[in-house]
């Protein structure tokens, strides 16, 4: 039973037994994993604040071949996002980052790109305290990295360019459709949203954050991408409902 060490991001934790925690974390080198942190809920726990959601930590754990759950031995905090989560809107956005990452990424499949994306998003929310752009960026890139992002330039049905004021999308049919090829029940997306998406795919998040990003930019596209994620993971995102309820 070797002791392993890795950089990780805590995705979420669940209370377990008397004073333990079940921790779902994204290891940089080993992918998404789950483990038990014994005594983590006790007042004098050696884990302290390291297991709070989205904490960027160095983790040491024991792994057995026959067991799904690892045993978390020790954690060291590299960067905390605890403070930013005391703002409800920011906390809600970061909870969505956790939920999507946990739902989209299979267990034990290392993805450095997703790891960097989660960290980048959390840092952007922490720095700006405005979660809308970082969250839209995260959702777009998650869908792209998962291989579900439709072509943004071309109609999936006729192959023509998407030049009109609006394009149309549906989770049931892969790809975007032009005005002529639209089908009933397809969701309209304004072309400004596609332009914003292209910008997000070509520019760094910190550069985008410096430019003006009016509220509601690409909201229709983000909504469609969230539906696409829900369609792929075959369940509704709890945080999406929470965001709708809070009007965020």
């Amino acid at each position: 039973m070797p002791l392993r060490e890795s950089e990780a991001i805590v995705l979420r934790t669940y209370p377990l037994g008397e004073g333990d925690r079940l921790v779902s974390f994204l290891s940089r080198s080993l992918g998404r994993m789950r483990g038990v942190a014994a005594g983590a809920r006790r007042t004098k726990s050696r884990f302290g604040s390291t297991l709070e959601p989205l904490s960027y930590i160095r983790i040491w754990f024991f792994e057995r071949e026959t067991r799904d759950l690892v045993r978390v031995n020790q954690c060291e905090l590299i960067e905390s996002f605890l403070d930013v989560q005391s703002d409800y809107a920011c906390g809600l956005a970061l909870a969505q980052v956790s939920e999507i990452t946990e739902a989209v990424l299979p267990e034990r499949e290392a993805s450095d790109a997703v790891f960097r994306l989660v960290l980048l998003t959390a840092r952007a929310v922490k720095a700006t305290r405005k979660p809308e752009l970082p969250l839209a960026y995260f959702i777009l890139w998650t869908v792209k990295l998962a291989g579900w992002l439709p072509e943004l330039d071309r109609c999936a049905r006729c192959g023509g360019g998407l030049g009109g004021a609006k394009v149309y999308a549906s989770v049931a049919r892969h790809g975007l459709a032009c005005e002529k090829c639209r089908l009933p029940a397809m969701r309209p997306i304004v072309t400004e949203s596609l332009a914003a998406a292209k910008k997000m795919l070509s520019q760094r998040l910190d550069k985008l954050a410096e430019s003006a990003w009016p509220a509601g930019t690409a909201a229709d596209l983000t909504g469609h991408l969230l539906e696409l994620i829900e369609h792929q993971i075959e369940r509704k995102l709890t945080t999406r409902r929470m965001m709708m309820e809070s009007g965020a």
Binding site: Y88, G91, L92, A95, T238, M242, E245
Partner: peptide, 11 residues
Amino acid sequence: ALSPLQGVGPE
């Protein structure tokens, strides 16, 4: 407590 991941909001 407020916990978006568990579906607990202010309401």
